[in-house]
Amino acid sequence: MADNTKLIDARGLSCPQPVLIAGDEMDALGSGRIEVLTDCGASPENVGRAAKAKGWRLVTSADAGGGVRLVFEKP
């Protein structure tokens, strides 16, 4: 994770909490890089859809210790 990446650890939270938390951080930052960790089955797709609607681009998605690691960027 780059030093300027905002980390959101939403593991243990069920939808829509990861989506709401990630969306609030995306709004607060406006641009940059955000990493979201989640272990809720529907969250990766839902967070990705919300991020796209806010103009954020999915950079990478990978399995991470029983969950998923999503990295988004917005210039």
Score class of each variant (00 low, 15 high):
38 T>L: 07
8 I>V: 15
45 E>H: 13
37 L>H: 12
42 A>T: 15
37 L>Y: 12
59 V>W: 07
75 P>H: 00
36 V>F: 08
54 K>M: 14
55 G>E: 10
48 G>C: 13
13 L>W: 09
20 L>H: 04
73 E>P: 01
26 M>T: 02
68 V>K: 13
51 A>F: 10
17 Q>E: 15
57 R>G: 05
40 C>W: 11
37 L>P: 03
7 L>A: 00
62 A>T: 09
8 I>T: 00
60 T>S: 14
27 D>R: 15
8 I>Q: 01
68 V>S: 08
60 T>E: 12
56 W>N: 03
59 V>R: 14
72 F>H: 05
73 E>T: 14
25 E>N: 11
20 L>R: 13
29 L>G: 06
27 D>F: 11
74 K>M: 00
9 D>N: 11
21 I>S: 04
22 A>S: 14
20 L>Y: 02
62 A>R: 15
8 I>C: 00
51 A>L: 09
38 T>V: 12
75 P>T: 07
66 G>W: 09
15 C>K: 01
72 F>P: 00
30 G>D: 09
9 D>F: 09
52 K>W: 01
26 M>D: 00
34 I>T: 07
17 Q>G: 02
60 T>F: 02
69 R>I: 04
21 I>Y: 01
41 G>C: 00
49 R>N: 13
22 A>E: 02
23 G>M: 06
64 A>T: 00
51 A>G: 12
55 G>P: 11
17 Q>W: 06
50 A>N: 14
27 D>V: 15
17 Q>H: 13
39 D>F: 05
2 A>F: 06
7 L>P: 05
23 G>E: 04
41 G>P: 10
69 R>G: 03
35 E>Q: 15
31 S>V: 02
30 G>Q: 02
1 M>F: 12
35 E>A: 15
1 M>Y: 08
40 C>N: 15
36 V>S: 10
60 T>Q: 08
26 M>P: 05
49 R>Y: 10
36 V>R: 07
43 S>E: 12
65 G>D: 15
14 S>N: 11
52 K>V: 11
47 V>C: 04
1 M>R: 13
62 A>D: 13
61 S>W: 01
16 P>A: 06
